[in-house]
Design a protein around this nucleic acid. Structure first.
Length: 587
RNA sequence: GCUCCAGUGGCGCAAUGGCAGCGCAGCCGAUUUGUAAUCGGCAGGUUAUAGGUUCGAAUCCUAUCUGGAGCUCCA
């Protein structure tokens, strides 16, 4: 019996084929590793989205040299054209077969009694496995081992640390090469690298890990994002507020953060025998604003928003550049509304999200609704109303979404929006989250049209997520070449010789006066050097000026793409840059 | 937090037990240049921190800190 035959299956996609190839490559790797390191015990070796891994229990971790040796030996095995054979066993037989593989025995133990237990073998190597595989090792055309890392057995930190080898495999050398060059491309776009090169931000040991220093170039971009964000929020009838960075323990007790979120909070600051905590979230402050007055049904919806910096203690190993930090600035808002307003509010949030995301050049989204988990607070009708509003809003707009059944937080359903970047990666930014817990804990009310007290719906929402993280995503999305409206410097004026400095200054002043971010380069270097430098700094426009331009009151315009537009009047240059600086222009 | 790897001028790197060096950036000077790097000079380091081994440590050992690849986590 052979379960590998998929030749007659028209639904067999390239993804499925790759899965088989990768899964099979993982087997070949395990084969070689057990030959080279007889003491290694096998864990699991599945295919992943873009490769595979195999986990081994082994006293000494693998080195890079080991990896090279393993890779060479794998090539030999693959060239032997072993076929993958399917076998079935009784539980008793398989236990006997794996008596020296403690981790395999644990997996076998978890297989239900009545289920078929299968293995696949190639050459002398046989591994507990449900398949499927390729028919023969010769179908593994191109593979590469990538790196080694520790991984907990069954992802449980209390279990032993295994050694995981990552690799990838493809049906052709070309496909593998493309994949490897995509990895290179992602490395080139790494926001940590570009952050240094373009002088956007830094993280300093002495300040602390996960705490961002925004340099002038980064700060210009942040300011532009914030200004645009504020403008759009005022247009959408949000109230912008400011709230403190610390609050007394009592507040966090009422909100439940000290009960449920304490391990992510910075320790207490004690003053005058009272504990204060740095805020890990803005919501309690927004609630306090809500409660600063009696609210009537006529006041609702009440939308409070704030670009608020919060502090969360993240474990050292999870910090990552701008993408995972300890001090993050949320573009936060809270909507307090009546049940009959819920759907319209969700709709409004969606409008605003899409508008803002389009402005940043994100046009592909993946949307997920998470519904009620088994352990939850709040009445069923509220969950139902909220969840249906989320679904209805998307359906009325013909937006596709997935449902994560039971994936919501205990306090309410939510919708997450993932944006697709220029190289096809998805990032989660926007979340819109109902909260049935805080209104209850704080006893939020509004007076309805019968003069009776009612509890409002409360919705947390953040569009960009955190400014730090979003900035990191933007850097990688644009590979540092920000669109003109976001570019820290929009134009660099480059004189041909030092005779032209005066004219540079003149046009610089004119363009600045018209809100163009412009600089001119008076270093003692040649024009070509300055062009190269401006281009490396990804400045959208270069204006080169010499005798000819002075005579005709013009400039020679060049783009960072290398395109030479030619000599234009200063007015034309100015208009061109201003036109290109419009926020909805993402070219 | 865990496993492994790494930390050398602002940045990128070299020196593997025996004189801390190179390139870029910076500064000074020469050059006055027409669309991606002109030439010469100068300056810049307690080799992450603390301790140890050694006649001698960037290099070996221990601890701490920081970063990286992952794991776990991201009510």
């Amino acid at each position: 019996m052979n379960k590998n035959d998929n030749s007659s299956n028209p639904n067999s996609t390239i993804e499925e084929k790759r899965k088989r190839i990768r899964h099979s490559t993982a087997h070949v790797m395990a084969d070689v590793v057990t030959q080279m390191f007889p003491e290694a015990k096998l864990a699991i070796g599945p295919p992943t989205n873009d490769g595979f891994y195999y986990d081994f229990l082994i006293p000494k971790p693998f080195t890079n040299e080991d990896l090279e040796k393993i890779e060479k030996k794998m090539a030999k095995v693959i060239n032997s054209n072993f076929s993958f054979e399917y076998h079935e066993y009784t539980k008793k037989e398989i236990i006997e077969q794996n008596k020296d593989e403690p981790l395999k025995l644990e997996i076998i133990d978890g297989i239900p009694e009545n289920e078929t237990i299968s293995t696949y073998s190639h050459g002398n190597f046989e591994d507990l496995c449900a398949g499927p595989h390729v028919e023969s090792t010769k179908e593994i055309i191109a593979f590469k081992l990538l790196n080694v890392a520790g991984a907990y057995w069954k992802g449980d930190e209390s279990r032993p640390m295994l050694q995981r080898i990552y690799g990838t495999a493809f049906e052709s050398q070309d496909a593998l090469d493309t994949h490897l060059s995509n990895l290179e491309e992602a490395k080139k776009r790494d926001h940590r690298k570009l952050g240094k090169e373009l002088d956007l931000f830094s993280i300093d040991d002495q300040v602390g890990s996960g705490l961002i220093i925004w340099h002038p170039n980064g700060a210009i971009i942040r300011t532009l994002i914030e200004d645009m964000w504020k403008k759009e929020h005022y247009l959408s009838n949000y109230n912008l507020i400011f709230t403190p960075h610390v609050g007394k323990a009592n507040l966090w007790e009422t909100s439940g953060h000290l009960e449920f979120f304490k391990e992510n909070m910075f320790s207490a600051i004690e003053m005058d025998n009272v504990d204060y905590y740095l805020k890990p979230m803005n919501c309690p402050f927004h609630i306090k604003y809500y409660q600063s007055d009696i609210r009537s049904y006529r006041d609702l919806p009440l939308r409070t928003s704030e670009i608020g910096t919060v502090y969360r203690y993240e474990r050292a190993g999870v910090l990552h550049g701008l993408l995972r930090v300890r001090g993050l600035t949320q573009d936060d808002a809270h909507i307090f509304c009546r049940p009959d307003q819920v759907e319209e509010e969700i709709n409004g949030v969606l409008d605003l999200t899409l508008k803002i995301m389009h402005t940043f050049g994100f046009n592909d989204f993946s949307i997920k609704i998470s519904t009620k988990p088994t352990k939850a607070v709040g009445e069923d009708e509220k969950w139902e109303l909220a969840t249906n509003s989320l679904k209805n809003t998307l359906e009325k707009r013909n937006i596709e979404y997935e449902i994560d059944e039971g994936g919501g937080a205990f306090y309410g359903p939510k919708i997450d929006i993932h944006i697709k970047d220029a190289i096809g990666r998805f990032w989660q930014c926007t979340t819109v989250q109902f909260d049935f817990n805080l209104p209850h804990r704080f006893g939020l009310t509004y007076i309805d049209d019968n003069g009776k007290e009612n509890q409002p719906f409360m919705i947390h929402r953040t569009l960009l997520g955190s400014l730090e993280r979003f900035f990191g995503i933007l850097i990688e999305h644009y590979a540092g070449a920000f669109p003109t409206w976001l570019a820290p410097i929009q134009a660099m004026i480059i004189p041909i010789t030092d005779k032209h400095y005066e004219y540079c200054k003149e046009i610089s002043e004119k363009l600045s006066a018209n809100n163009i971010r412009v600089k001119y380069d008076t270093r003692n270097e040649r024009m070509n050097y300055k062009i190269r430098d401006a281009q490396n700094k990804k400045i959208p426009y270069m204006i080169i000026v010499g005798d000819k331009e002075i005579d005709t009151k013009s400039g020679s315009l060049r783009k960072r793409t290398g395109e030479n537009i030619g000599v234009l009047s200063i007015d034309d240059i100015q208009n061109m840059i201003l036109e290109d600086s419009l926020q909805n222009n993402n070219s």
